[in-house]
Design a protein around this nucleic acid. Structure first.
Ligand SMILES: O=c1ccn([C@H]2C[C@H](O)[C@@H](COP(=O)(O)OP(=O)(O)OP(=O)(O)O)O2)c(=O)[nH]1
Ligand SMILES: [Mg+2]
Length: 646
DNA sequence: GCACAGACTAG
DNA sequence: CTAGTC
DNA sequence: GTGC
């Protein structure tokens, strides 16, 4: 079939790509060795509109044979590169977007010559290390030539590149639905300077506590190019162009490198804050100050926000319906809808029909059809139908109780319970666990997020208490706070201790726990460490509040673990959760396993009981976040760039 | 047809 | 082991 | 439910 292809058959891009991958899977496609396109997820815009030209086929073949993943449909959430010989306007149209400026910054836009450039750089071979599973680690090999995406001869849409350089950080317009929403210009740990945690408007300043390094101002280009090959200078290729088969092309635009499986990769996302609810005062005053953010954000994204908000709303309903039901199928459906929601939120253009929706990654036939139904009839009958049952509302209400999940909530509903009052009365004979009792008692407080300033204030009271126990402790505030969010759902604290003096933090949790209760900061416990007394590793969950009248209860989690695991722990605890899952997902695909202790090679799991490890594996990285990113081939991302959840 | 992250505590 | 949570 |  290869031969026919050129001669007779007129191929469309889809057919050709299918054929290529079919051959590849059948082992019939020559895969010459240095896979210098490995890790790249490319959307190649053929020169031939309907029927591919020879040059298009050659490029497709080259991309695949050298390891690239091709996108049949442009999907900005996973694409790392767009290769186009067309002009900006044509390209935008064919990608289904308004302007090439809408292409997320992490995606490199290049021309065909870029492909030839890499061929000339690496066509003959390179040194590559060997992975734990015995294979060559092409995944993480460095291909510095890929960084030449901004070379005028290799780039596409120079206006885009220029734009990116000018913009400190151009977060994709993230859409936010809540009221007080607004974008924060600084993704950095913006901290509110003033008082009233009243929320709406805090002026943010810069990073407060010792925490993180400042976001590099040159951000956006950083985001784009800085990647997994830190330290490696972009090498210019020896030979200016052409490759094995000579293919030089002018065009250009593109690039990106983290081909992340799905969600990893750079997602610039500089945080923008949504002030959701904090709305209750309770005086809190912050002590934070931070240099003005370099990122004055405001990105030029034309499409400000939700062009598809109405569709998102419907999908949120579907998500809610399925997450309310305690059946496994529903859980995965909910998982899928969440993914659709995230991707549609990033979709820069208005979806006009089911077909268009179907093009978006994560949106399958079923969902596309529902979207189509909504677009044509104004509603989705399935939703109307399911919501009329009443269980969804009840489950939503009950799961608001900390410690009550969909199973318990659904059971209560089945028993006839409908209100929190029913729960309090123990209707149907329901019994609450201690933690659920507390959850019910502080239902409102627990379901509110707190102003960042309050999280900081509480943390600044806790830290000295910890340091008084042992001044060598490393105590940091993590989670959404570290990511720079303006409001936090809880306070996440990470504690560890250097081991260089031969001492450890054994017993610290017990003392800290006692000290915090004594200081009236901890108010209720929700889950105690299995071994507070002497373990170096433990988790505490509870409620806390500023020790002043009228302060609200806030959720707090304290995680403690050995110094050697600090990098992995930092990574884990910084999140966000979606980012972590994407990272772990990728690690798994690469033969590794990633958890809060480290990145492991050779972990073998019981195929029947997924959580059980047959072989524990060997730790390959854990002391720094950087090494983990690097080994996984994920471009370095500052905490505030690790936002994947909506 | 299978994976979708991986771990800790409560009971 | 299941449920709930990070 | 979706993608491979
Ligand atoms: O299912 C989860 C939940 C959390 N985490 C990690 C990432 C997250 O950032 C951190 C702290 O969890 P938390 O629930 O506090 O989330 P957050 O990111 O801090 O957000 P919030 O502001 O709601 O607390 O633990 C996970 O890996 N998986
Ligand atoms: Mg948190």
């Amino acid at each position: 079939m290869p031969k026919d292809r050129k001669v007779a058959k007129k191929w469309t891009a889809d057919e050709y790509i299918d054929d290529l991958f079919q051959k590849k899977d059948a082992g019939k496609l020559p895969m010459p060795n240095p896979p210098f396109f490995l890790g790249m997820e490319v959307f190649y815009l053929p020169i031939g509109q309907d029927v591919l030209r020879d040059i298009d086929m050659k490029r497709y073949e080259r991309l695949v044979s050298r390891g690239a993943v091709l996108q049949r449909r442009y999907d900005p959430t996973t694409a790392t590169h767009i290769v186009s010989e067309n002009g900006a306007k044509v390209t935008a149209t064919r990608l289904g977007i308004n302007s090439v400026l809408d292409i997320p910054e992490h995606i490199r836009t290049v021309n065909g010559a870029f492909l030839g450039h890499l061929v000339s750089c690496y066509g003959s071979g390179t040194h590559v290390r060997t992975l734990p599973n015995g294979r060559k680690d092409y995944e993480n090999a460095h291909w510095p030539g890929r960084e030449d995406f901004d070379d005028p001869k290799l780039a596409a849409f120079t206006e885009r590149i220029k734009k990116i350089e000018e913009i400190p950080v151009a977060p994709p317009p993230q859409v936010r639905r809540r009221h007080g929403e607004r974008r924060l210009s600084s993704p950095q740990p913006p901290a509110r300077s003033d008082t009233e945690d009243e929320d709406e408007d805090p002026r943010f300043k810069r990073n407060p506590t010792k925490s993180r390094q400042l976001p590099t101002p040159s951000q956006s280009s950083d985001i784009i190019s800085r990647s997994s090959s830190p330290g490696l200078p972009p090498t210019s290729s020896p030979t200016p162009y052409d490759d094995e088969k000579a293919d030089s092309d002018p065009l250009a635009e593109f690039y990106s490198k983290a081909r992340e499986e799905a969600e990893l990769g750079l997602n610039d996302e500089s945080e923008f804050v949504d002030y959701t609810n904090h709305g209750h005062k309770r005086g809190v005053r912050t002590i934070t100050h931070t240099p003005p953010s370099v990122w004055s954000v405001d990105n030029p994204r034309p499409t400000a926000s939700c062009l598809n908000q109405d569709i998102i709303d419907e999908l949120e309903r579907l998500h809610l319906i399925h997450s309310s039901r305690p059946f496994e199928e529903d859980a995965w459906r909910a998982f899928s809808y969440k993914k659709c929601i995230r991707n549609i939120k990033n979709h820069p253009i208005r979806i006009k029909n089911g077909n268009e929706a179907r093009q978006i990654y994560g949106v399958g036939e079923k969902t596309a059809s529902k979207i189509n139904e909504f677009l044509t009839t104004g509603k989705i009958s399935r939703i109307t139908h399911e919501l009329s049952k009443g269980d969804v509302a009840a489950v939503k209400l009950f799961t608001g109780i900390y410690g009550v999940g969909s199973h318990t909530a659904y059971n209560w509903y089945t028993l006839g319970l409908r209100t929190l009052e029913d729960v309090r009365r123990g209707k149907g004979g329901v019994k609450l666990s201690p933690c659920q009792e507390t959850g019910l008692k502080f239902y409102d407080d627990i379901n509110l997020r707190m102003p960042r300033a309050e999280a900081e204030e509480i943390f600044l009271m806790i830290k000295p208490i910890a340091l008084a126990i042992d001044p060598k402790l490393s105590v940091d505030i993590m989670g959404s706070f570290r990511r720079g969010k303006a409001d936090c759902g809880d306070i996440d604290i990470l504690i560890t201790r250097p081991i260089h003096d031969g001492k450890t933090h054994a017993g610290v949790m017990a003392r800290l726990w006692a000290g915090l209760h004594k200081a009236r900061i901890l108010t209720e416990d929700l889950a105690l460490p299995s071994n507070m007394e002497d373990s170096l590793e433990c988790t505490y969950r509870g409620l806390c509040s500023l020790p002043v009248p009228d302060s609200r209860r806030r959720r707090i989690d304290i995680l403690m673990l050995p110094w050697q695991y600090r990098g992995a722990a930092l990574l884990y605890y910084t999140g966000d959760d979606i980012f972590n899952r994407a990272m772990r997902f990728k690690a798994g695909k690469m033969g590794y396993s990633l958890n809060q202790r480290g990145l492991y090679a050779g972990v073998v799991r019981n195929p029947n009981k997924r959580t059980e490890k047959t072989n524990q594996g060997n730790i390959v990285a854990s002391e720094t976040e950087e090494e983990i990113f690097k080994i996984l081939g994920v471009p370095w991302q500052e905490p505030w760039q690790r936002v994947r959840g909506a």
